[in-house]
């Protein structure tokens, strides 16, 4: 194992600190939950729009609204972005600028991010409680609400990365440009 070395003022010798322990494959496998745009990290399993709709009604509707656009939590689809429903000028703003028509469907660049976030963080009161099949189903339903997949779509690790998201073409990578 390589050690790292640093010099302290007044000390001619190098000190070595090497306190990390080698992580096992099993440890890494259970903790690596990130899903990447190309599909890396996606688990086996599948889920369709129909099952997703049922799950949505039971687990998501209270916060995200009937069709994913009513809130009060972040918009998944439809007419709004992140504006609060309690904002008295919400309607005026939406009318004034159609860009307020923002949602997961309109803004997120990759469909894999929906799977990643739902699986790690949703439902808000019981994160990490959904099965992989349930996460595929909910991802399918959210994409269906945005008219990005058809009503009979069934998602797997093979076809999810291929779903084209409108947010991708609108992306400007500020960091790369600096």
């Amino acid at each position: 194992m390589m050690t790292f070395a640093f010099a302290l003022p007044g000390l001619a010798d190098e000190l070595e600190i090497n306190l990390g322990t080698l992580a096992t494959e099993a440890e890494l496998h259970s903790r690596s939950i990130s899903i990447f745009p190309g599909g890396r990290g996606l688990p086996p399993g599948s889920g369709g729009v129909g099952e997703g709709a049922e799950l949505y009604r039971a687990r998501c509707r209270t916060c995200h609204g009937e069709t994913g656009s009513e809130g009060p939590a972040s918009r998944l689809s439809g007419s709004d972005g992140w504006m609060s429903f309690s904002d008295p000028l919400r309607i005026v703003r939406i009318q004034k600028n159609p860009l307020l028509v923002m949602s997961v469907g309109a803004q997120w660049p990759y469909a894999t991010s929906i799977f990643d976030y739902v699986r790690r963080a949703m439902p808000h009161t019981a994160p990490k409680s959904l099965t992989n099949d349930e996460v595929y189903a909910l991802t399918a339903y959210i994409l269906y609400l945005n008219e990005l997949v058809s009503e009979d779509a069934i998602l797997t690790k093979e076809n999810l990365p291929g779903v084209e998201m409108p947010g991708r073409a609108r992306t400007v990578d500020v960091w790369q440009e600096e």
């Binding site: 990643d116 976030y117 992306t171």
Partner: peptide
Amino acid sequence: TETPAFTKDESGLYTEFLSDGSIARFSF
């Protein structure tokens, strides 16, 4: 990794909408 993961916050909430309609990401 070689590339970003495009997590929830870099997909949505922590991005900016520019006046031309594009979405600025990774404006750290």
